[in-house]
């Protein structure tokens, strides 16, 4: 089966300092549809940089990035934005909900992004479906200030899912939540793999990492795969 993502020898060097620092050092990785994998490592090991490269926020200095067999290593920003919209969903540690918008409007943000236009009715249906998927459709009209951390993170997950991405990138999504709520959020994230969406989770939490299908360890920019013991 063709890998959804195929990274080969990805290198990222942090310049602009007295001595350039290698953040990613020849990272190679294959991700298939419906897979879930966790990336663990110490702070500063390059996890977020790897996620930035995977999510097309940043370009690698060396190496090849194939998405469904197409080389996207040196994609111009305009096409990268289009791919981010059509293929990727993002969930961050700080939920990044806009406080002046309701939950539904925050989710709709991913649909009103200049990449195609959906009529209001269809937009609303998609938003409600995404909110329903994470179990908070009843909070559609609430603003973030009136929601708990777990609920806010689920709104952020709904925002990531509303465009039905093929890859979901989550950067420490439970970092700001208690254990119980964090588990619920991981459940919500993991459920997307059932429909063929790949889930890449960056986390410090070994328990959450252990629930993923694959466990990858990043240390000083070098990625190694570990066996999942649970």
């Amino acid at each position: 089966m063709t890998a959804l993502i195929q990274l080969t020898g990805i290198t990222k060097v942090l310049k602009g300092q007295e001595q350039p620092r290698t953040i990613l050092d020849g990272v190679s990785l294959d991700v298939h549809p419906g897979e879930s994998l966790a990336i663990v490592g110490r702070s500063g090991s390059g996890k977020s940089t790897l996620l930035s490269v995977l999510g097309l926020f940043d370009r690698p200095d060396q190496g090849t990035y194939l998405l469904s067999g197409t080389d996207i290593s040196r994609l111009p920003e305009r096409r990268a934005a289009k791919l981010r919209s059509s293929h990727f969903g993002f969930v961050f540690q700080r939920f990044f909900l806009l406080k002046h918008l309701t939950a539904a409007q925050n989710v709709a943000m991913a649909l009103v992004n200049g990449q195609g236009w959906l009529p209001r009715r269809q937009r609303r249906a998609r938003v409600m479906q995404a909110l329903d998927e994470v179990g908070i459709a009843h909070l559609a009209k609430n603003r973030p200030a009136r929601m708990s951390g777990g609920e806010q993170q689920r709104v952020a997950i709904a925002r990531a899912l509303v465009r039905e991405p093929r890859i979901l990138l989550a950067d420490e999504p439970t970092g700001a939540l208690d254990t119980e709520t964090g588990t619920l959020v991981i459940d919500a994230l993991q459920s997307v793999t059932a429909r063929g969406c790949a889930l890449i989770l960056v986390t410090h939490d070994r328990d959450h990492a252990a629930r993923m299908g694959r466990l990858l360890h990043l240390d000083a920019g070098v990625l190694t795969e570990q066996l999942v013991t649970s």
Partner: peptide, 12 residues
């Protein structure tokens, strides 16, 4: 930054 992350082009 978030809008760019969800695919909003710079021009928009």
């Amino acid at each position: 930054a978030l809008r760019r992350a969800v695919g909003t082009p710079r021009t928009l």
